[in-house]
Design a protein around this nucleic acid. Sequence first.
DNA 1: CGAAGTATCTTTTTT
DNA 2: AGATACTTCG
Length: 664
Amino acid sequence: MKLHLKELLNPQQYRGASILHGPLLIIAGAGSGKTRVITYRIANMLQQGIAQKSILALTFTNKAAQEMEQRICAHTGTPARQLTVSTFHAFGLSIIQRHAAKLGYRGKLTVFDTQDIASLIKESAREIKFSEDRLDVYGIAAHFSRIKSGMASWEGESLRWKKLFHEYQAHLKAYQAVDFDDLISLPISLFTSHPEVLEEYQERFQYILVDEFQDTSRIQYTFLKMIAQKYRNICVVGDDDQSIYSWRGADYENISSFEKDFPEVIEIKLEQNYRSTGTILSAANQVIANNKKRKPKSLWTGEQQGHPLRLVCPEDEADEAAFIASKIRELKYAKSLRYDAFGILVRTNALMSTIEAELLAEQIPYTVSGGQSFFARKEVKDVIAYLRILAQPHNDLDFLRIINTPRRGLGKSTIEHIRHAADEGGSSLFSAARQLVNSESSRLPDRSKQPLLELLDLIEETSDSIRGSSSISAVLQSLLERIEYRQHLIGEHPKKPQLGQWKYGNAERFLQFLAQWQQDSDHKNSSLFDLINKVSLTGKQEPASQEGRVNLMTIHASKGLEFTCVFLPAVEQDIIPHGRSIEEDPGALEEERRLFYVALTRARQILYLSYCSTRKVMNEKRTCIPSPFLDEIPKELFSSEEPEIKQDDQTDFFAALRSQLTGS
DNA sequence: CGAAGTATCTTTTTT
DNA sequence: AGATACTTCG
């Protein structure tokens, strides 16, 4: 397949896809065809005879990686077998695994997710008898993460956690586990201590491409720079206006660093927007113009003005949800749109539940992405814990998770007994338990002995049968039956039997996902570990993503996507500039505005914004104030609800709405 | 000693 | 509301 780039791309895009050598910085405004440039660029590289294996493309989410790979295949017509399209984290993991021995690991590694980390910190704290009135595991984890990625140092208040940190690190090592930060920092230390390994990667990946560059953290940039240093064929694509991950270390100053570190850089700006109508674009432009810290740019479009924006003020969140649902119905019919042309974007996960319930009730098909991952659901985590304990019986965290799930009468004191024995013998909880059960003299009460014995046998037997079986999921299935997991889930919710059913359904869906994964020819040689890590790293991703469904997601998760019609509920003070984020750091206002900007620019044609008069937050009714960001959108871009009615005698739209609000 | 019952607080965003 | 931590009951 021959590519005619000049016909396919505008002049700036063309430069982006055809300058293949040397450092390149592409500033790509929202909807400016960024993905298009990237994919054609790679397709072009291949056509120019650059080997697939020397190309490395890094993204932030698996979804983005998959999509990119698919589109490249579509352009070139050949499968991209040797191409490395990966997330930073998955790429880091592959490096660590390949050189595990050099880093002091033996054998397979496990990636711990947020929850694992939390319980590991708890465990470490217990171990060194670290007591604090209220152990803020979440905050400690965040600090550890900052330490590991070089964003913070030990000083002042945080010093008291230093010992805990070392304990935590020791535990990680003992479990042959790594956390998310290790996935980047360990490769860097590897490169530093073993320059020959670095050189191997430099030689291998002579062409590097980074998407969403504004979301790279310092340490990720360091990592990148090391590999790119030698050949300097590195192309980074980003948009400072869409930087919305600074809370997890993203630093769009990296764009300036890149300019300094690669002074021969060529810069390209993509400013023509192909996505949105003129109205939507000017709303977005006006909003983002309020940010002081940004690279000046002006997006423009050749499109029509299109529909006016709609601002709606429902009574409460239930009304709002009902409005959205009925509007979707109506528009779907009136404009003959598919369900997947609609996006509902929310600031927080908590906002999703009401809407989800309404869509469910109205029988509108939908998918949620972002937010609580399928794999983070408790019932799925339970199954994963069982799965992991089969692969690694000596992982104490998983052992603790399953020891009394479902209830088998093994409570705190039994666990203390086992823990004690484990400490003395310097062994894992699992082997300590085995010894306790076997020895006559143990102080373990008979009452707990029996169920514990059963559990240990269960693990060992299942572990054996998994080796002899070709289907992991079938083995797990029978394990679930044996522990009567379904009954357990139903019993957990005595008042809502169907909730238990639903949860069991999730567990089953996970088993299906497992079976599918195992069947996939790509994974024929993979181990259980690969699967488990895949699950941790994949994070968000429904086993089956569907077409023809309304998309409900957080704004963060919506980045990179577009929808013909977008609904933006809860455009309220303390929600869209989020109260907590401002409280924490007043400078975060600009980031909140970028977030709002990202949300606006997802829309192609129709954009609904709404705010409620009152909203239930944590079981408490609260009066809402419209978001100050709304004032930044010129009011002539709005129309009142009914499209056919003209807004002739609108005095002050917002003032009217506000007085209506305060009056009630 | 474990299970059931009660009080309390929360998650903003995610690899 | 729902999960977690703490308290009391069998």
